[in-house]
Design a protein around this nucleic acid. Structure first.
Lengths: 121, 121
DNA sequence: CGGTATCCCTGTTGATACTG
DNA sequence: CAGTATCAACAGGGATACCG
């Protein structure tokens, strides 16, 4: 017996949901954006760039992005170990969208600050 | 004593995070998209369009979108009551982005289906 | 019609310690 | 260096019943 098919009856609309799930994690947006800005980052570099994320969450999030084919994980068999992360082509396809969103966020934050300033004096 | 300032040291990058929080809920993307497609929707219409969302979550999500100035809520003082939701200008500013994301989602879903088909025979 | 209120459950996230 | 493992905390979300 298959799982009850909930939510999206129309496939067209469902893709919004689909997409959000793939990039909607707590840290996914930021990781993708950093990866875009730096082209290539090692695990430790990501970790230092985002000190608020635990190693557990960082690893977990990276694995999810990897299995969704948004990032590549390249392991060098050396001592000490070295792992590099990059955006896949699919992942890069998201860049304009994240850029758009980031700019939108900037606008909103500015607008909010302006309001707060006016309210404060 | 103010809350410890975690996460985003650089304001520039933080806006990605900021934006994701405003549209990252489980249903926000879909609601915004429906509102864009239909221009104006009543509570019950939204509810019927997305039967998988409980009234509690629908109300809660709508309130969040409202306080983030992404949607307008217009109440008609009639019996029976009538409430209409529309996108604000700010909310409409997100439409190109959601459209982009939706198209991206469509592509990915197609690609996945193709793969599944090949694997299945 | 358009919501609230309550209780509960689950998934996500966090803290901490440990490893090849 | 780049993770894994375990347990605990917490927020988000679901079911159900009720209200103006």
């Amino acid at each position: 017996m298959r799982k009850k098919e909930k939510s999206c009856s129309e496939a067209a609309t469902c893709s919004v949901d689909y997409a959000f799930k793939r990039i909607g994690g707590k840290y996914k947006g930021r990781i993708l954006w950093y990866l875009h800005e730096h082209s290539i980052l090692r695990y430790g570099e990501l970790s230092r760039t985002m000190p608020d994320i635990t190693t557990k969450m960082l690893t977990q999030t990276l694995r999810e992005l990897e299995s969704d084919h948004l990032i590549n994980r390249k392991v060098y068999l050396e001592v000490p170990p070295k792992v590099e992360y990059t955006l896949t082509e699919v992942g890069q396809g998201l860049v304009p969208f994240i850029r758009y969103l980031k700019e939108w966020g900037d606008e909103q934050m500015k607008a909010e600050r302006k309001k707060a300033k006016m309210a404060g004096g």
